[in-house]
Amino acid sequence: MAYVVTDACIDILDQSCMEECPVDCIYQGDRMMYIHPDECVDCGKCMPACPSDAIHWEHKLPADAVPFRDAAVEFFEEHEQASGGAAECGPVGIDHPVVTQAGGRA
């Protein structure tokens, strides 16, 4: 895994990150985007594209955002259809429990 989408993306779903990703590894859940940890090539193009600063390099992840790294891994383990390219997959339409239990954005 290289980059992680955090709670700053919840209920935003801007998708600017998807447009910049050269390997199509950013998938849409119901309330948040997820970066596939096995497909990401660590290019970093998604970070500056995100208007809500929701994407962090996993090695510089704020301590309070660590659950979102684990959530991304578990999200892709549980949803096998989310692989091989986000454009081909389309929106997954569900989220990891850490996202579904999070409050909405104002």
Rank of each mutant, 00 (worst) to 15 (best):
A54V: 02
S52P: 00
P67V: 06
D95G: 09
V98D: 05
P91L: 01
Q15F: 02
I94C: 04
C21R: 01
V99F: 05
D7Y: 02
C25A: 15
V99Q: 10
I12H: 11
M1V: 12
H36M: 06
M18D: 05
I55Y: 10
D24A: 03
I10Y: 01
M47C: 07
D53N: 10
V4R: 00
V98L: 10
C17Y: 04
Y3C: 00
Y34A: 09
S83M: 04
G44F: 05
A71R: 09
F76P: 11
V73D: 10
A71C: 05
M1P: 10
E19N: 09
V66F: 03
M1E: 07
C89R: 13
I94V: 15
R69D: 12
F76M: 09
I12A: 12
C9A: 11
M1Q: 04
V98I: 15
I94R: 04
D42P: 00
I26Q: 07
C50F: 04
E19M: 10
G104D: 13
G90I: 06
D30Q: 15
P51D: 01
L13S: 07
D70G: 01
T6C: 13
C21T: 06
A102L: 07
F68T: 09
K60Q: 14
Y34N: 12
G85A: 08
V23C: 09
E77M: 09
M32S: 14
A65Y: 14
I12E: 08
D14E: 11
Q101M: 14
A2C: 07
V5C: 01
A87T: 14
I12Y: 12
R105L: 14
D70L: 11
H56Y: 15
F76N: 04
A71V: 03
G93C: 12
E39N: 02
F76S: 08
D70K: 13
D70S: 01
D38M: 06
R31H: 11
I55K: 12
E74Q: 15
D70H: 06
I55P: 03
S52N: 12
C21I: 04
H56Q: 08
Q15H: 13
E20N: 10
M18H: 13
I55M: 11
P37Y: 04
C46K: 00
A63L: 12
Y27C: 08
V4T: 07
I12S: 06
P91C: 00
P22K: 07
I26Y: 01
L61E: 09
D42S: 13
R105C: 10
C25L: 05
A86R: 15
L61M: 14
C9H: 07
L61V: 04
E78T: 11
G85F: 08
A86S: 15
C17G: 07
D30R: 15
K45N: 13
D53Q: 10
C21G: 08
G44P: 00
K60C: 03
Y34C: 08
P91Q: 01
A87S: 15
R31V: 03
